[in-house]
Computed example of a mutant assay.
Amino acid sequence: MKIRDIIDEVNKSNKKALTVFLTAGFPDKNKFIDYAKAAIDGGVDILEIGIPFSDPLADGPVIQASSSLALKQNVTLKDIFNFIESIRKYSDIPTVLMGYANPINKYGKEKFLIDASASGANGLIVPDIPLEEYDFFFPANNHGLDIILLTTPTSSDERIRAIDKKSEGFVYCVSVTGTTGADKNFDDSTVEHLKRTYSLITKNKMMIGFGIGKPEDIKKFYDYSDGFIVGSRIIKSILEGTEPAVIKETVEIFKNACG
């Protein structure tokens, strides 16, 4: 099922969709699938899988640490495609790859899209490719992958509309300026930013990410999004040694907050 259809199906039940971010190959190659299955069993609607990179500009210290650990184990793009194949055997949940331009360029853009799609991936986020470089970076044929673009608090109304027009699957709304992390301070300006962005997104569904670290965050922004993305909160728990069974329970708590 397409990403958009999954979100729409959840919304029709008067609920918000939940995406959980996991760094591929973290905490190690053998246990990664166990954590992915735990998130799925906890009720996540979409699984976002981060491609480890040495200079992840949009990621805060927690996700950077997980990426560094994965790189030390030599996690490769081929490993990641194998992970997705394993996940696909377990569940038909949509999977979205999140990675930076350099590893994709090195692998070969066309080859990457072909192999990612063949593995069972449904979407792709490349945060360091802005709207202006979209047509240059991505081939005309994305081989069935939804290319998901991001808005930020500094995005103008015109830019948000253009991102909505170009994006597929959903629009990733960055809640606050800066990098990822579960310790963000939300104020009235955050609410106004989310309300404004949500009102301008008409083609796609909108998911809020960056700083969604507790169920209360979901409840606070519930009316201004079609879903939420939780990353650093989960990654931090895994860094601290939390086992998959407990991660499943954590995901269930966030899923319950989604309605």
Rank of each mutant, 00 (worst) to 15 (best):
G241W: 11
G181S: 03
F83T: 05
D55Y: 05
G209R: 05
F254I: 07
Y35K: 05
F254A: 11
K166E: 12
Y198H: 13
E240Q: 13
P52E: 02
I40S: 13
K236Y: 13
T154I: 11
S13F: 04
K12V: 00
R4E: 15
V62C: 04
F26H: 15
P139Y: 02
F221E: 05
D55K: 11
R196K: 15
V62R: 03
I84P: 10
I201K: 07
I80C: 01
P244E: 00
N11K: 15
M206G: 08
A245N: 14
A257V: 09
N185R: 12
T202L: 06
S86P: 08
V20G: 07
D157W: 08
I148R: 09
K111H: 07
S67A: 14
E158C: 00
D8W: 10
F221K: 00
S237F: 03
D135I: 04
F53G: 01
G43N: 08
L145A: 03
I163C: 02
L200I: 10
D41Y: 09
I93T: 15
N102V: 12
G120F: 09
S54Y: 12
I63E: 07
P215D: 00
L200C: 00
S155F: 07
Y35A: 02
S237Y: 09
I234Y: 08
Y134Q: 03
N105C: 13
K2P: 14
G42R: 04
K72Y: 00
P27R: 02
A101L: 01
E216R: 06
V171Y: 08
K195D: 02
V174A: 07
D146C: 08
K184S: 07
V10S: 11
